[in-house]
Design a protein around this nucleic acid. Structure first.
Lengths: 131, 131
DNA sequence: AGACATTACATGCGTGCACATTTATTGTCT
DNA sequence: AGACAATAAATGTGCACGCATGTAATGTCT
């Protein structure tokens, strides 16, 4: 395969990088300053709170996140330490650990979600120019 | 401003995150395994080699990269230690430092660029569905 | 029951990053 | 000329991440 030097593809990758970094930096900054939440922490909380189930397995969470298994483990640990989620061993399959948001977690998520949405809205242009 | 809960915007952000992570992980893996270069290192080398000028200031590089000033400093330091770039104080403005690729740096870039392009090509679908 | 592979999560280690601080140079104001 | 603010880059610290590995529980095969 000759691998045509696709300059346009490279340019699109650059655009993607720029958009991703701009938005994620803005999110990180806003969530961190206003709610003391990192992006990964908000994302985890968001998945837990918006899920139809009241608890989820760690590996279910992981499937929906862009985080390594160990990073997720630590993220959940941080959230647990702050009393935002609870971890519990599953009785059916005792290898598994379930994670559930606490009331405090739901409250904080309710506070942080508008901030998240506002940042996304500020960057509407960057997001709308996608397919 | 009522901040309509824009689900679609959120969905687009999710797509952007997924695309970014998929591609950057693939790039990182390929460049790292085949050429012992991290993404930031390749990006830096790429900017230097493809620039019309033979040398650039660190702050010029930074303007084109998504890296903090200190992270860029370390990246350049790593490249310099491997003999891929040279750093030199600017004689006109002695605060500034210029960075230039060495012959070895140009050679390694020539080797790595096809790998970079190949990964981008593999992910053509993810990139083409942008505007 | 005993051995083995698999799955789920935790931990140690090295690395990269952001933030704050430090050092050095320049330009300006008096 | 001396003082001061601004700028460019380097450095130090602390945190989050990925990878490799460790630990524990489960299921399977004999």
């Amino acid at each position: 395969m000759p691998l045509t030097p696709d300059v346009e593809l490279c340019e699109r990758w650059r655009q993607l990088m720029t958009r991703y970094h701009d938005i994620s930096c803005a999110l990180e900054r806003a969530l961190s300053q206003q709610h003391d939440l990192g992006i990964s922490e908000f994302e985890t909380l968001d998945l837990l709170v918006t899920s139809p189930c009241d608890k989820q397995f760690v590996h279910e969470l992981q499937a929906n996140m862009h985080l390594s298994q160990s990073a997720l483990s630590r993220t959940v640990a941080r959230l647990e330490k702050r009393g935002l989620v609870t971890r519990a061993m599953c009785s059916n399959d005792r290898r598994a650990v379930t994670v559930a948001p606490t009331e405090a977690g739901r409250r904080l998520h309710a506070e942080a979600a508008p901030t998240h949405a506002a940042i996304l809205s500020e960057h509407r242009g960057d997001l709308q120019s996608q397919a």
